[in-house]
Simulated assay, not measured.
Amino acid sequence: MGKTKKNALVSLVVLSLVGTLAAGCSTSKGVDQTAASKETDYKLGWYASAPHPYFEEVKKGVEAFEKEYGITVEKQIGPDWNQTSETDNVGALAAKGIKYFSIYPSDGSGANGLYEELTNRGVKIVNFGASTVQPTTASFFVGTDAKKAAMVATEKLIELMGDKGNIINVLEVLEDSNTILRKQGVEEVVKKHPNVTIIQEISGMKSTEEAVQKIDSVIAANIDKVDGIIATGFTPTVAIAQVMGDYKSKDNKRTIHSIGIDTDPIVVKAIKDGTVDATIAQNSFGAGYLSMLLLKKMADGWAPKQDSYAVDGGIVVVTKDNVDTFQDDIMKVTNDLKANLETKYLEKK
Rank of each mutant, 00 (worst) to 15 (best):
G122M: 08
A94I: 07
K124I: 14
K147M: 14
T119K: 15
D163P: 06
A130T: 08
G91R: 08
G97H: 08
T136E: 07
G162I: 06
G110H: 08
K148Q: 11
V126I: 10
F101G: 00
F101W: 10
V123W: 12
K147R: 14
V133S: 03
G122W: 11
A146K: 01
L160V: 04
K147A: 12
S102G: 12
T137P: 07
L118S: 05
T119D: 05
I125N: 00
K96F: 00
I125F: 01
I158L: 11
A130F: 07
I125T: 06
T144D: 09
L93E: 04
T154F: 02
E116D: 13
L157T: 02
F128S: 05
A138R: 00
N120Y: 04
L157Q: 01
K96A: 10
K147E: 15
F128V: 08
T154A: 03
K99C: 07
K156A: 12
E117C: 04
L118P: 02
Y115I: 12
V142A: 03
T136A: 06
G110K: 12
G97Q: 11
L160W: 03
L118H: 02
D163I: 06
N120L: 14
D107V: 14
S102F: 05
K124C: 05
A111Y: 11
L160D: 15
N112C: 06
T119E: 02
V152S: 14
A111N: 12
I158Y: 09
N120C: 07
L93V: 06
K96M: 10
F128G: 02
L157V: 12
P135R: 08
L114Y: 03
E116Y: 05
R121F: 04
G129Q: 06
G91C: 09
A138V: 03
G143N: 08
I98K: 00
V142L: 03
K147H: 06
L160G: 04
V152H: 14
R121Y: 09
A150L: 09
V90Q: 01
F141S: 00
K148V: 00
A146Y: 12
G110W: 11
R121L: 10
A146N: 15
M151A: 13
I125H: 01
I125Q: 00
T136R: 01
G108K: 03
T132A: 14
A94M: 12
M161H: 07
Q134Y: 12
A130S: 13
A146L: 09
A146C: 09
A146P: 02
Q134N: 06
K156I: 05
A146E: 15
I98L: 02
L157C: 04
N112K: 08
A92Q: 15
E155A: 13
K96C: 03
T137N: 06
D163M: 09
M151N: 03
T137A: 04
E155W: 07
M161P: 03
K147S: 13
I158D: 02
F141P: 00
I98M: 05
N120E: 14
G91Q: 10
G143R: 01
T144H: 02
A130H: 11
V152T: 11
Y100P: 01
T144F: 03
M161W: 07
V133N: 05
D163Y: 09
A94Q: 14
V133F: 02
G122N: 11
A153D: 08
S102V: 05
K156V: 04
